[in-house]
Simulated scan of single mutants.
Amino acid sequence: MIVTMADSVPGREVADVLGIVRGNVVRTRFFGRDIMAGLRNLVGGEVPEYTKLMAEAREQALDRMRDDAQRLGADAIVTMRITTSMIMGGSAELLAYGTAVRLK
């Protein structure tokens, strides 16, 4: 599955636009990670526990978007974007979305 943030796939022509596809995941913080993150917050710098949490959530959202596109019979996803929003204190949603297309 080709996934691109561009409007098209270089060297390929779009035969059919199949529609919007999406994949989302909501993740919450974990108590054990919060303790370490709180200690790191005192000295500043990156919080690797949360970096890993968000990276895993992003990959899961992308996988779900690809699965959605495959169900439609897509060859590619163009104009892919990722957004995030806070659901409530301590939890966030990551949403990956784009346009599923079939290529010639």
Rank of each mutant, 00 (worst) to 15 (best):
M1S: 11
M1K: 02
I2M: 07
T4W: 03
T4M: 04
T4N: 02
M5D: 09
A6W: 03
D7F: 00
S8C: 00
S8K: 13
S8D: 13
V9Q: 07
V9A: 10
P10Q: 08
P10G: 09
G11D: 09
G11K: 11
R12M: 13
R12F: 11
E13N: 13
E13T: 14
E13F: 01
V14K: 12
A15V: 04
D16A: 11
V17E: 15
L18F: 07
G19Y: 10
G19T: 08
G19D: 09
R22C: 01
G23K: 05
G23I: 03
N24T: 11
N24K: 15
V25L: 12
V25D: 07
V25Q: 08
V25T: 13
V25G: 07
V25A: 06
T28H: 13
T28F: 12
T28W: 08
T28Y: 12
D34N: 14
I35S: 11
I35C: 01
M36G: 00
M36C: 02
A37I: 11
R40V: 02
R40D: 05
R40L: 15
N41P: 00
V43Q: 14
E46H: 08
E46T: 10
V47N: 15
E49F: 03
E49D: 13
E49A: 09
T51D: 12
K52G: 04
L53H: 05
L53G: 01
M54T: 09
M54V: 10
A55D: 15
A55T: 12
A57N: 05
R58T: 14
R58G: 06
E59S: 10
A61K: 03
A61V: 02
A61Q: 05
L62V: 10
R64V: 00
M65A: 08
M65V: 03
R66L: 01
D67T: 05
D67M: 06
D68L: 01
D68M: 01
D68N: 14
A69F: 00
A69Q: 03
Q70K: 14
R71F: 00
L72N: 07
A74T: 05
D75Q: 04
D75A: 01
V78L: 06
T79M: 13
T79E: 15
M80D: 05
M80T: 08
R81T: 07
T83H: 02
T83M: 04
T84K: 08
S85G: 13
M86S: 12
M86K: 13
I87S: 06
G89N: 09
E93T: 05
E93R: 15
L95T: 13
A96T: 05
A96E: 04
Y97E: 15
Y97N: 06
T99V: 14
T99Q: 13
A100W: 09
A100M: 09
A100S: 11
V101I: 12
R102V: 02
L103T: 06
K104V: 04
